[in-house]
Amino acid sequence: MASGDAEAAAAFVRRFQARVFGLALSVVGDTGLAEEVAQEAFVRVWRHAATYDPRRGRVATWLLTITRNLAVDAIRLNHKHRSDPESLLRAMYAAPAEDPFETGPYGSDQLRAGLRALPLEQSRPIVMSVFYGLTAKEIADREGIPLGTVKTRIRRGLARLRQELGVTDD
């Protein structure tokens, strides 16, 4: 991947472009801006491929994390503050498309089910934090609820999602 080979680059982009653009669009809510973010994410990953450490996780995870970080930077820079997590949550609850490059759907079914089962008061701040890059303080200010309450709801929600994924402290 680090060789810069044109065919490898084309295969890489085709493999991930729907997921990268979809995530960018989910965060920024604007097609043009999402396109810029997604392109920059591919460029960053491609240029830094030599520094990628497989022990850090899958390439898709790395790419999506970079996409999310760039998208959050973009909404902050463009003052496109998001506070409408319900539509994103609905899209995440929905049955996903099959990933044409893998034998299964996008993402974890267990986690999707876990997210669906969470009370909205927990899933809402989780989405605002993870996808929109808002701090607990910013969420508290926007939602008009105490900071401690926001932190508790996020912590409890993430703990339940951890159980769905089978992550334990053992």
Binding site: A91, P96, D99, Y106, G107, S108, L111, I126, V130
Partner: peptide
């Protein structure tokens, strides 16, 4: 694991 749940 949450990030891939965003719709493609």
């Amino acid at each position: 694991e949450l990030l891939p749940l965003a719709p493609a």
